[in-house]
Design a protein around this nucleic acid. Structure first.
Lengths: 222, 222
DNA sequence: TCTGCTTTTGCGTTTTTCCGCAAGTTGATT
DNA sequence: AATCAACTTGCGGAAAAACGCAAAAGCAGA
């Protein structure tokens, strides 16, 4: 199991919550940092002292509170960390599972786990920590489906998420073309909406529209 | 604003999180209790000392850790509290928004706010506290729709939630009759499923099936 | 038991969604 | 400029969902 953990999270409540979950797993040596620059400094310092961390748990988005910050997101932090300590295990714990970012994290930075905040987060965290400590990967369920297909899912366009939001708000899919036209959004023909919903279903592994909405709600995409 | 608050919540992480949200509102005099019996004792004691609480924030479900507990749920706690201090404002903060329980809390015990944990909880909490301090009520969005209709929604049958779960899991609604038959669940004809989905849509104020699934996901019903 | 209400069920029609086909568009690569 | 792949769009038909109607079943209260 892990011996020295760094937790990077700016919302105090969440970081406290995570700590107590870690305690449940008999992990107590957890340091915290509430912004990325500070986290990177800590990692550098511990490397220099030859007492490196063996796990980094980080959020992706941080409040813009600090004047002197150079690293603004968990993504950048991970990029920097990989340069100085490539073997450090990384678990990302984020509310915004933007498909493109997740894909980049998994494929380019080879993060060891991705957990989306929300329902079942604590179970997910426990699972993730146990698996990662054994050298395995863990990606929370709904994220997993994103990688089970050949398509390029890096960028969900804003109009894709708009379609999903409109559906979740009660519009029938045949009403969406009208909405697109009214707001001068391109590519809004009936058949295009159908096509894109089809693609979205494939992308998220959904069989039906109701399931698709359920999944994107679970992921936190809308 | 409130001067003396009691927070009843057994998960330490959440109670810490709530405290920090309260701090954002410049509220610092918050006592906490992690099980119901203890909470009731505190309320009695403070009444006796003529320094009563003016707000109670409580969860509904608690872990079964304590040997000597007599009050096992937030619901029972509220029932007891109403007997000894009827004017105490009550905010319920719970993950399980079982429709029947919520309805009972609102209609029978006249709780001042109900917030379902999950997306947007901190905003909801802030809104709730501000409104309740002005003597108003606040029920988080998705719960509200439950009360905007004449129907008796106290009891969602288990097969109602089953239908919703099956839909969210990707079954087409025409496949549901087969599933009901296979598992010997009564009232599973195609037309019945249609009828009950119709009722559920009315109940939750949904126009379409995808929206219905979105709503029950938000509520945490499934 | 009778009465009135809700739920269940079947049937048939309308509406909506789904999807194949084919032609046109766009944008990147060679 | 030619090419290729992905996206857009329209048309039309198949599949599924939505819904009105009406009969039957179930159930609670007078």
């Amino acid at each position: 199991m892990f011996k020295k953990i760094l937790l990077v999270e700016d919302q105090q409540s969440i970081s406290k919550g995570l700590k107590s979950i870690l305690n449940d797993l008999d992990i107590y040596n957890v340091e915290t940092s509430d912004y990325c620059d500070n986290a990177l400094l800590k990692i550098k310092a511990s490397l220099a002292k030859k007492q490196p961390y063996d796990l980094l748990i980080t959020d992706l988005s941080f409040k813009d509170d600090y004047f002197l910050k150079t690293i603004g997101s968990g993504e950048e932090l991970i990029e920097q960390v990989k340069k100085i300590q490539p073997d450090l295990k990384i678990i990302v714990f984020s509310i915004q599972s933007k498909v493109g970012i997740v894909k980049k994290l998994v494929e380019d930075y080879a993060i060891d786990a991705f957990i989306s905040k929300g329902r079942r987060e604590s179970e997910d965290i426990k699972k993730a920590i146990q698996l990662v400590s054994k050298g395995k990967k863990y990606y929370s369920n709904s994220i997993l489906t994103l990688f089970n297909n050949s398509r390029n899912i890096s960028q969900l366009s804003t109009s894709d998420t708009l379609i999903l939001k409109l559906l979740a708000s009660g519009l029938k899919q045949k009403q969406i073309p009208e909405h697109f036209k009214k707001n001068n959004i391109p590519s809004g023909s009936k058949r295009s909406i159908e096509y894109r919903l089809q693609e979205l279903k494939i992308m998220f592994g959904a069989e039906t529209l109701p399931q698709l909405i359920g999944i994107v709600k679970d992921i936190g995409l809308i």
